[in-house]
């Protein structure tokens, strides 16, 4: 009996700890949401509380400012993820299912890039983007993003394709299917969950990237993605209207929130499957 009471106390403690830490984690977001309803004047006298007179026009102001950034980010992340998935599937399949001269060398040439940190190639990549006249243009983001993110994608897809039973492919081959048909009709449909995890991870990475777009496209205001647009948002005003700025932060979360609702499982897996990050 005593022991049970101790166990119950421990269980209650777990909830207390979890709720306390999650409360701390969510507080900045709650503060952001509360501030969206306030004017600067109200903020200075009512810093913590609920907004007394909710300022809806903070959102209309922010909407006009943030909408182009959201559009740019959807375009960049969308094109990147399509390219990355396509090349990861092709490359992963090639390395998993075929024997060809130079296979091992080429494969190591790809995966060894996982050891090269972005900080090393940062400056020369910028010079290349400049010399190819990509600066100020979304191609300065999309091509390097695909080039970099396919490396991990190929690595993961190769493991996955190699794990598919050979008999499946063999049966199709006997029926006269060629390799590309086998890839598109059998291998890809079977690997949709894996592809989704890679895709969600890729989208999160490009969606949040800050430094590379800062140096390559931020000079072109109409090309700015969400992180750049938001970081420059307060500097557009002489006196920062915090309510509107926070409303902009809030609106910028909507596309990911939608993706989260529809792909929750892959979202959780993509963020928490550590092996993938390697």
């Amino acid at each position: 009996m005593r022991h049970q009471r101790g166990a119950l106390r421990a269980e209650i403690m777990r909830y207390v700890v979890l709720v306390a830490f999650l409360g701390g984690m969510f507080y900045p977001i709650v503060f952001m949401l509360l501030t969206t309803g306030k004017t600067n004047a109200e903020l200075s006298i009512n810093f913590f509380g609920l907004p007394r007179d909710f300022q809806v026009e903070n959102y209309t102001r922010a909407f006009n400012a943030v909408l182009p950034y959201i559009g740019n980010s959807i375009k960049v992340s969308g094109v990147t993820v399509i390219g990355q998935v396509a090349l990861s599937v092709l490359g992963g399949y090639a390395f998993a299912r075929f024997k060809f001269p130079g296979k091992n060398i080429l494969f190591y040439a790809v995966v060894s890039l996982m050891m090269v940190p972005g900080i090393l190639t940062f400056v020369p990549q910028f010079i290349i983007a400049r010399d190819l006249s990509l600066l100020g243009n979304h191609n300065a983001l999309i091509f390097p993003y695909i080039a970099g993110s396919q490396v991990g994608g190929i690595f993961m897809m190769r493991i996955f394709f190699a794990s598919l039973p050979e008999e499946l492919m063999e049966a199709a081959r006997v029926d006269g299917a060629n390799e590309l048909t086998i890839l598109s009709r059998i291998a890809v449909p079977l690997s949709i969950p894996m592809i989704m995890v890679i895709a969600v991870q890729n989208i999160l990475g490009t969606w949040n990237d800050y430094i590379w777009p800062l140096v390559t496209i931020s000079m072109n205001e109409s090309a700015r993605t969400i992180p750049i647009g938001l970081a420059f948002l307060p500097t557009e005003y002489a006196q920062i209207p915090y309510g509107a700025v926070m409303a902009g932060y809030t609106l910028s979360a909507i596309p990911m929130a939608i993706l989260f609702v529809f792909t929750m499982r892959y979202f959780v897996q993509g963020l928490s499957s550590g092996a993938l990050k390697l």
């Binding site: 490359g91 090639a94 190639t121 400056v123 020369p124 990549q125 091509f143 396919q150």
Partner: peptide, 24 residues
């Protein structure tokens, strides 16, 4: 066919990975 499948991958890697690496 396999090499053709890998052409886009290595084309991108040469421009945006190998060359920048050695250039750095």
């Amino acid at each position: 066919l396999v090499y053709v499948m890998l052409v886009p991958t290595f084309a991108l890697l040469f421009v945006f990975a190998y060359y920048p690496f050695f250039n750095a």
